[in-house]
Design a protein around this nucleic acid. Structure first.
Lengths: 328, 328
DNA sequence: TCTGATTATGAAAACGATTTCATGAATTCG
DNA sequence: CGAATTCATGAAATCGTTTTCATAATCAGA
């Protein structure tokens, strides 16, 4: 593999002159430029990434943390972020935290050791106070999740509104016995806010929530099925269920159908995200503008990297939208 | 940000000694080790990634190419690969080719400029002759796709068998008018082999395939719906459809249902992958052992990086399995 | 014609880590 | 007892690029 020294030797010039040509700096004659280009081509030379990074103090790489890439919500976020990053000449390192604090912490070291220029967190496992010190090493942008104390750009969705409009919809459909189904992810402000919205809508309608109508630990299709098995064995099951994702809602609808229950007559179900699955399973769902939050988050990340200014809090909040289908 | 020079100064030792402690090389007294560790902690020192990469000629990073991360097949592959890589201390750079040759080519430069130690290709856009020269810069492993001429490790599935068993199943269910629905991805050996298997099963049963029963360009749920719209307007539509993914199959099933067609009476549909969607939509499907091929591919990649030996061809072929549900 | 600015090119330093080679002390073995 | 080996520590070189500073030639304007 040729180095800039080899190119300089073949062109009969100095490494400085070759570097000037590569980086399109001024004060090099056209003749010398030709010589350098010819030598680069003959030697099949490209600059070494590690040397460049060391000298320039830049990596042109961004790490994106997601709990699991198989979750369609996160894979959709990452798809858009990778495309935006590639457009601007950045690479995206994928980090799966699997909802684990220590996994998130070990990935934070990427910023500290300067293996990446910045990080985007799409879920937060540790307390912000554990994450905040890493801002000394590079910019952090939070996407989808939220933190009151974070002095960083945050791009997120109004989840209180999401919880509210979903629940209001169920109430407007005539349901009075409403269950709540969630991932039960302790660190998640998303889950917390949706529940606030859910309870607010219940309170406005003068409705009550029974403890046994709360279903936790549901992240996947299988979890949705398990939730239905728990629900069907209640003496007084809820008439409608608010869930945290289309997968979980689909699992519930499928298991209910298999058990001979009629959706929505015997059980109304509302999902979240409006993925292709939602249409296939005729799910009423709350649509999140994933493409918008992903591209804005990546845009803010790259802007933060380039500006080299101290991190400041900036909130970008987007609204959610109800999509009504047959499951409610 | 402290450097090794700062640590050396605070410990009253040379950078060589500090490096010996960091890298656990021999011939350093316990007392000196203590001094170094104390200084590192006080200065909150971690080694700089760019400097290490340059000196060691290693990046501990692997690039994985997928057409689109939102395709559940690919997101499942990447999930397993990222986990395996993280276990061995490697980072994974995600590269989305979007089925484009020039996108793939631009990502190949990551190997040439030594920004990654190796690449895993899960789909192949360019001719192998265009990719092969990059082996001079680092190892390449092919996963899921196939190439006769590639002198690299390949981990893939027996897609001729997959096409065959899926089609045989339809024939065994009594269907004689079989349609074929595919992504129509010209570079894909996967699609090519499945069609060979499909035709082989047809020929064995003495069945014929009409040109109008061939449906191309289908990758997504929406493409599946479009396929159904085309099919329903045929004078002599097929009784059964072999498709290339569960998404496409689900789109067809959904659109058929919406049009009042009965699945499988009016149209039998078979999918591929056995994703959660397949169970939700009651799809008969050909299951691919995604977890196995992903972890083997990453294992072979890391082995290739560490061994620094010349690339040799090695094939790992895994079988497929029929999963029968209500759509056939 | 002279002076200051611009142009053209190159040597050395810099980025930060790790390895190679050097030096001297201590230990071991014949 | 002396030679060889091992142990302990450090200086310089190395990895490969880019920038800073130096030098000389050319140009433009007063």
């Amino acid at each position: 593999m040729a180095t800039i020294q080899d190119v300089a030797k073949m062109a009969g010039l100095s490494r400085t002159t070759v570097s000037r040509v590569i980086n399109q700096h001024p004060y090099v004659t056209e003749e010398k430029k030709r010589l350098v280009s010819k030598a680069m081509k003959e030697l099949n030379y490209v600059p070494n990434s590690s040397a460049r990074r060391l000298r320039r103090q830049q990596t042109e790489t961004i790490a994106v943390y997601v709990p699991r890439i198989t979750n369609p919500f996160f894979s959709h976020l990452v798809e858009v972020m990778e495309k935006e990053a590639a457009k601007k000449g950045y690479q995206l390192i994928l980090c799966q935290t699997s909802y684990k604090k220590e996994q998130e912490r070990s990935f934070l070291e990427l910023l500290k050791t300067k293996q990446v220029d910045g990080l985007i967190l799409t879920s937060i496992e540790n307390d912000w106070s554990e994450i905040e010190p890493y801002l000394a090493y590079g910019p952090i942008v939070v996407c989808n999740e939220y933190s009151d104390s974070a002095q960083v750009p945050l791009v997120f969705l109004d989840q209180i509104e999401g919880g509210y409009i979903g629940t209001k919809h169920l109430i407007e459909q005539g349901y009075t016995k409403l269950g709540y189904c969630t991932g039960d992810h302790k660190s998640s402000r998303v889950a917390h806010d949706r529940r606030i919205g859910f309870l607010k809508a219940l309170n406005e309608a003068g409705l009550q929530m029974k403890d046994e109508w709360y279903f936790g630990g549901a992240y996947s299709v299988q979890d949705g099925k398990n939730t239905f098995e728990t629900l069907r064995n209640l003496e007084d099951p809820p008439q409608a269920l608010f869930t945290g994702s289309d997968e979980v809602a689909a699992g519930i609808v499928k298991a209910a159908g298999d058990a001979g229950w009629n959706v929505p007559q015997d059980l109304a179900v509302i999902g979240f995200d409006n993925q292709p699955l939602a249409e296939l399973m005729e799910l009423t769902t709350v649509e999140q503008p994933i493409e918008s939050i992903a591209s804005q988050a990546m845009g803010l990340m790259i802007e933060s990297i380039k500006s080299k200014r101290a991190s400041v809090r900036k909130e970008v909040i987007l609204p959610l939208k109800m999509i009504q289908r047959s499951s409610t």
